[in-house]
């Protein structure tokens, strides 16, 4: 019998690799279950419920938490998304331009606004802009400010996404369009951008989810009662009731939107995968 044959025989001594692996997997389940039990037993549920799950406080939040707070959150997010998309498109096209200064400007913009925390942008819009241009009001009041602040941040990310999408459209598409007599601009609008958007729909929707959460930073702009969104509304109510239930309810309202959106993104990604095949 040669050595090669011996190696193929089942091992008689000790555990085989496969057995070790299944044992290790079993051990991980045991640790996980133990951790859950320890958490469930160890946490002081009574106090937690007192602080976070007061049913009558939660009930008093309705319908305002939906008709006012969630509505404003959605409005802020969408307006920021629209501004971000428009600005991001311009910056993406500048980034792809054959004119050097356009490319540099776009690159500078992206580096700055991608590198700064969104919070600082909000403070900047809220404080610096009124100081720099006294007497001027940003169109749309708080809504305009939020759209601008969120849009400025979102544009930096979206510009990179859109640029990647445009570059992912095969070169032959532009050549075909040009050979049919399309001007560069018309080819971009009619042929390239529609295909680019198909490619980047999932990451763009992800960006929407991120904006949805970032809209909570409105709190730093100073808003009227009518302009409060979920986080501010929850926090205000938490301090007047001296109880954290409103925070929990506000959090659930965020999830009410983000979880279905995440589901939609995964569906779109799966569909995009199919289309490639």
């Amino acid at each position: 019998m040669t050595t090669a044959d011996t190696e193929l025989q089942p091992r008689r001594k000790g555990l085989s690799r496969r057995r070790k692996r299944s044992l290790a997997r079993g051990a991980q389940y045991v640790v996980f279950v133990a951790a859950v039990i320890a958490f469930a037993v160890g946490a002081d549920w009574g106090r937690l419920r007192n602080q976070f799950a007061q049913w009558d406080i939660a009930r008093r939040m309705f319908p305002d938490v939906i008709t006012l707070a969630l509505k404003n959150t959605v409005l802020y997010t969408l307006s920021g998304f629209v501004v971000g998309l428009a600005l991001g498109m311009v910056i993406a096209l500048m980034r792809l331009s054959s004119v050097g200064p356009y490319r540099w400007l776009a690159g500078l913009y992206i580096e700055i606004f991608r590198g700064l925390p969104a919070l600082l942008i909000f403070i900047f819009i809220g404080v610096a802009v009124p100081l720099a241009f006294p007497g001027t009001e940003i169109v749309g009041g708080t809504y305009g400010k939020v759209a601008l602040a969120l849009g400025l941040v979102a544009a930096a990310y979206m510009a990179e996404t859109i640029r990647a999408g445009i570059q992912a459209v095969p070169k032959g598409q532009l050549e075909a369009a040009r050979s049919l007599g399309f001007s560069p601009a018309r080819a971009m609008v009619s042929i390239i951008i529609p295909q680019a958007f198909r490619i980047i729909l999932p990451p763009l929707t992800n960006e929407l989810v991120l904006l949805f959460k970032d809209s909570s930073l409105v709190l730093f702009l100073g808003v009227t009662l009518e302009e409060r969104e979920l986080s501010k509304y929850g926090r205000d109510l938490a301090s007047t009731t001296a109880n954290s239930t409103p925070i929990l309810v506000a959090g659930l309202c965020y999830l009410l939107v983000t979880i279905p959106l995440g589901f939609v993104v995964r569906r779109m990604e799966a569909k995009a995968q199919e289309a490639v095949r």
Partner: peptide, 15 residues
């Protein structure tokens, strides 16, 4: 270019 039709190896139809 409108007067010149071009056909490519990779077809390049708009998908």
């Amino acid at each position: 270019r409108r007067r010149i039709g071009m056909v490519f190896q990779q077809f390049n139809l708009f998908p």
